[in-house]
């Protein structure tokens, strides 16, 4: 186990190296200029030049890269060009809403999707199966923001049941926290309901064809018991994988959802930073998000080894 862990951890280093280089390279070639954005809409051309040099943006690229890497190694993610705040502070401010949104989304998705998938597999070929599958496919055929706006329109604007936007930290009470997150989590959850339903159905179908399931039926065990105790337990492993795959997919959804609901999360931090070319923030956030993705997949790989004795690396 330990050698495996070490080997896998070492393998993430080149991956993160590629990410870091790619991000740095991409951004420095971009035509947008943070100095002009900072100077404001009404600044004179001279001011822009002066601000650019005060930010060190007129330094040669290799030097900027060396400075950045040096700081990274010392654990310094840099300082936002605009607010002058350390990137770590900015990220700390934004972590809670994003983690909360992602967790709640996964929770909703799993509770809805697993029963749906089991049902579809059990009634394979029936109209129930077909409608569940069409519903599932529609789930990831919809633009997240489109669904989000329609949900806001119905539940917040027309019915007035839920808030339109914003976030309430969990420290200020669980109920307000939950109320703010229901619509965003429903919006984002749709995609995952779709994914997990399909995954559950598929792996259930495979398991249901196995001999021991037939034996269980032959022994006269009740079908519900067979489904839950024998089949679902064995079908759940591939479902865990989807959470790993889902993280990468989720980032895109999170970015969009946070914009629709004005949630102050990592996603909006990133988009704002990209649109105004706040290099240190973009670099740090993309690096961290990619790191989290790599880490989650690493954990899932290891879980596999732990959970399924048949798998050896």
């Amino acid at each position: 186990m330990l050698p495996l862990l070490v080997r896998r951890l070492l393998a993430t280093i080149p991956v993160m190296g590629v990410v870091a280089l790619a991000v740095f390279g991409l951004l420095r070639l971009a035509p947008g200029d943070p100095a002009s954005v900072i100077a404001g809409d009404y600044a004179s051309p001279d001011d822009v030049v002066r601000i650019r040099s005060s930010l060190g943006l007129d330094q040669p690229l290799p030097k900027q890269l060396a400075i950045w890497f040096g700081n990274l190694l010392r654990g310094d993610l840099g300082t936002s060009i605009f607010s002058g705040l350390p990137v770590t502070t900015l990220i700390k401010q934004r972590v809670e809403p994003t983690v909360a949104l992602a967790t709640l989304t996964m929770l909703i998705a799993v509770t809805v999707a697993v029963p749906l998938g089991v049902l579809a597999a059990w009634k394979q070929g029936s109209w129930i199966d077909r409608s569940v599958m069409v519903f599932a496919v529609s789930g990831f055929s919809m633009p997240v923001f489109w669904l989000g706006f329609l949900l806001v329109w119905v539940f917040a604007v027309q019915l007035g049941w839920l808030p339109v936007q914003g976030y309430s930290p969990i420290a200020k009470g669980f109920w307000p926290f939950l109320r703010q997150l229901i619509l965003p989590a429903m919006t984002l959850g749709f995609v995952y309901v779709a994914l997990i339903t399909r995954m559950t159905r598929a792996s259930m179908l495979t398991v249901l064809r196995e001999d021991y399931i037939r034996t269980a039926y032959a022994k006269g065990l009740p079908p519900a018991g067979v489904l839950m105790r024998h089949a679902l337990k064995n079908a759940s492993l591939p479902v865990v994988t989807i959470i790993g795959v889902g993280v990468a997919l989720m980032v895109g959804g999170v970015v969009v959802t946070e914009s629709v609901f004005a949630l102050p999360g990592i996603g909006r931090l990133t988009v704002d930073a990209i649109l105004r070319r706040d290099y240190p923030v973009i670099q740090a956030v993309i690096l961290i998000v990619s790191g989290v993705y790599v880490l989650i997949n690493l954990v899932i790989d290891l879980l596999y080894v732990v959970l399924d004795p048949r798998i050896r690396y």
């Binding site: 806001v152 917040a156 604007v157 007035g160 914003g166 914009s259 609901f261």
Partner: peptide, 18 residues
Amino acid sequence: ARYIPDAATASAALEAGE
């Protein structure tokens, strides 16, 4: 001061008293 980039969202938030 709460920054809400989307006009539609800001409008709905004002109407809902948020």
